[in-house]
Design a protein around this nucleic acid. Structure first.
Lengths: 159, 159
DNA sequence: ATAGGAAAGTTGAGCTCTCAAGTATTGTAC
DNA sequence: GTACAATACTTGAGAGCTCAACTTTCCTAT
């Protein structure tokens, strides 16, 4: 027998959908308008910029941004066309390829970041109190528990 | 000067992104696999099923599911092809068209709902305590404050 | 009455995402 | 050492989404 959602759960669920949808769209729109890229591309550039020597294996990178191998491959192909990322073969294992953030890619990221952070503050943090931020963090970590998330920022001790 | 995110905010932000992304994808995959439709189509069918006489104006429906007019128009065109929704002209205002949920559409919705609710429980509610559900609700309402949300479920008094 | 603008929808092109299938390389078992 | 499977990644087709442009109908001000 299906355990349907009660009224409170229904409200919470729809509020969650609407809120996350709104934030996604707002960020996508802002980045597309101001920097000409979707949020997923921005995330790729960010991860690369944080990596050792600004390079990561495709599979690593995919895990880190939570993308399928296919999606990442397509995305990196586009980023490569723009000259923001470059692919390099791996010597030790010829199956893997490195994605390397170029100087141009880094420059774009640097120019895009302030507006993006501003949008994140405006749509999320400015609307919440400190205790709500803490609660949201724990809620999201609970949602992610047991799911393999490769983002190093989410994997360290200090819960 | 840009106010960058501190470590805690950074963690919260990435956790939020990963969590909402995971839930979106899980639901989309489940619905696509089990019922052959994306989550956005499901949401449309739900709103129509709740409406008076199972019909809504396109603009109403768009506001209710948080979609652009364009997206909704495309989506309803696909739903019409499948016979799940039908368009009817409006007598009193010939600019508007009604989207009407057909019997077939309702049947599909009824068959899809249990699996969908199950997925919602599995990915969200089963992972949170009751107080976290309450917190999440308030957080999402705060994020949505000042944003025009047309979902009637989110617009009644009991905050 | 009528012109100008607003509102409701639609359409098409370009882009991203998904899914399934495919290639190439590496690891493993006998 | 040679099949067989697993891994890493790519590719192509189909589908949905976005954005800008467009049509039609209604409203409003003069």
């Amino acid at each position: 027998m299906t355990r349907w959602l009660d009224d409170g759960e229904q409200r919470t669920w729809r509020a969650f959908l609407a809120a996350s949808q709104r934030i996604q769209e707002e960020l996508d729109r802002q980045l597309q308008r101001d920097s000409g890229m979707p949020h997923t591309y921005y995330a790729i550039l960010v991860r690369l910029s944080e990596a050792e020597k600004r390079k990561m294996r495709m599979s690593e990178l995919a895990g880190s941004v939570g993308s399928s191998p296919s999606r990442l491959s397509h995305a990196v192909a586009r980023l490569e066309e723009r000259g923001w990322v470059r692919r390099e073969p791996c010597e030790s294992d010829r199956r893997v390829s490195w994605a390397v953030l170029t100087d141009e890619g880094l420059a774009i990221l640097v120019s895009a970041a302030p507006g993006h952070v501003e949008a994140v503050r405006r749509t999320l943090f400015d609307r919440l109190g400190p205790e709500q931020v803490e609660q949201l963090s724990e809620i999201c970590m609970a949602i992610l528990k047991g799911v393999e998330v490769q983002d190093p920022v989410l994997r360290d001790p200090a819960s």
